[in-house]
């Protein structure tokens, strides 16, 4: 089956109320409706699914791996951005 006849879709699944949809994988399907059915068949076989999203992979704009130094490396050295310099009073308990 050719790529044009059967484009790629990204599948997101929400396992429980209160949780966000999570990316679980991708699949090929002719159109949105068939993608939803394929997602149901391929990714929800063991239950615990409340909702499925399918998104055409072509609609996803991704960062360029070759730019990862520019994009992400600078944050690695900025430890002050982590909330680790605060004294949390015991009374606050678990945060």
């Amino acid at each position: 089956m050719t790529e044009a006849a059967s484009p790629l879709w990204e599948v997101f699944i929400r396992p429980r109320n209160g949780l966000a949809h999570r990316h679980v994988g991708s699949l090929h399907a002719h159109d949105a409706k068939m993608a939803l059915q394929a997602a149901r068949d391929v990714y929800t076989r063991r239950g615990e699914t409340l909702s499925i999203w399918v998104v055409p992979s072509s609609a996803i704009v991704a960062s360029d791996p070759s730019e990862k130094d520019m994009m992400f490396e600078p944050t690695a050295s900025k430890i002050y951005r982590h909330p680790t310099f605060y004294e949390v009073p015991d009374e606050v308990g678990h945060m």
Partner: peptide, 12 residues
């Protein structure tokens, strides 16, 4: 089956 997706669907 014609595709991997359909193969799994058929199994179901």
């Amino acid at each position: 089956a014609p595709t991997l997706e359909e193969d799994i669907a058929m199994a179901n």
